[in-house]
Design a protein around this nucleic acid. Structure first.
Lengths: 217, 217
DNA sequence: CTCTATTTTAAACGCTCGTTTTATACACTC
DNA sequence: GAGTGTATAAAACGAGCGTTTAAAATAGAG
């Protein structure tokens, strides 16, 4: 029983690293099992299939991130209600920071891993992740959406919908292509940067884009 | 000789359609050749390899788009120089509109196809497309970059670099996931939309994001 | 018509993939 | 310590992939 958990853990830890690095479809079970030093068949034994392994990997991060995000959003809304103040776009967007950092509990480089996984999940298995997220954490996502709406009362819901997905795209692209871009930036501008700094650069961009005046009021 | 071109054309026309729909790696040569009603081996005969076919497909669009973009940028710079006026971020970004529409020469739905191909090219074969684009059309890309810089003199080059790639990510994501998102938007807001309208929604978002004040001057 | 070069075809090759099977080793209860 | 359920191991399966081969068909030139 003790040895069993060891193997299952070795698989999941290795898998999420390789998935984050090369994507889900580009990572074979043979890569994972040889890197983790376990038998090929053990993936199917412990998880049932590759698809189930992918879901297990994603679920491990979502189950930490989403409740933490929910708490941040609720806290922000509560504070605003108490002192009658209002919150802006940046306030709402900043709610993702702490939940991201909380992923260090899962793994030291959890935040980076999770964002890269998200990027690949969206670009490869398209609808699946969205469906999974919405059925399990739909309330949190809707609260996030509603609070962005509250922070930008002049924008129509349709515009906001698209701008949030543009933002998501910007973030996912920055994560998936992040390492390559960071190397180019380093050679062009002489500035070494880490994934966290890239994320910090994203916030002003996204906040301004979302809060831009609606072209058709 | 006449029949030969017919086959080669059938392959490329079918390939770019399937590539745009499912991505490069997800589309097999057997899908392409059976859909195009040609023999499997004819791809390797006419193009040499699948990789070469992908490059041929991309080159067909780039060779129309990039020179057209170059012309637009040069024209904008010329007008600004003549009457001493200046141009802003939107002016520069709007330079991609006409070149996109010019892709209808290649194919009726050329603009949509090209943007989707771009999305997959960037997310799948990562560095390859960038290298190819830079070696063949590096001047045009640099001119675009420089003019965005001119339109936003207060931003440092590093910030601009990242914001342009954030913008690219937003656009690519909107294209690759565009159909699914459009269906969701239609069911949530009752608004049917086409790919062109999605692109129109992108411009204000991206322009505001790029032109946002630099957080560290 | 004949010869030659180009194009098309059918078949197979070699490889990788996820999955399944079958047998062996292990841990724990009685 | 025998017996039982769980875990690991090696091997093979069947399918799909890009590519290659070698023969058949087709076209154009002399």
């Amino acid at each position: 029983m003790a040895k069993a958990l060891r193997t299952k853990d070795k698989i999941i830890v290795t898998a999420e690293m390789l998935f984050a690095e090369h994507g889900f479809e580009q990572t074979s079970l043979r890569q994972i099992t040889s890197e983790a030093d376990v038998n090929l068949a053990s993936v199917n034994y412990h998880f049932g299939s590759k698809k189930a392994l992918i879901q297990a990997v994603m679920a491990r991060y979502q189950s930490v991130f989403m409740p933490a995000l929910d708490a941040q959003l609720t806290e922000l809304a509560r504070r605003a209600e108490i002192n009658g103040a209002t919150y802006n776009t940046v306030d709402v967007l900043a709610c993702v920071n702490a939940p991201l950092l909380a992923l260090k509990q899962v793994r030291l480089d959890g935040p980076v891993i999770y964002l890269r996984l998200l990027g690949y999940a969206y670009s490869e298995i398209q609808g699946h992740l969205r469906k999974f997220t919405m059925t399990h954490y739909g309330n949190t996502v809707q609260q996030f959406f509603a609070m962005i709406q509250t922070a930008n009362p002049s924008l129509c819901a349709n515009t906001l919908f698209w701008r949030l997905h543009f933002s998501l795209g910007a973030m996912l692209f920055a994560q998936v292509s992040g390492q390559a871009l960071r190397e180019i930036a380093a050679s062009d501008f002489g500035e070494e940067a880490h994934a966290e700094e890239t994320l910090a650069k994203l916030l002003p961009f996204v906040a301004a884009g979302i809060a831009a005046p609606d072209p058709r009021p």
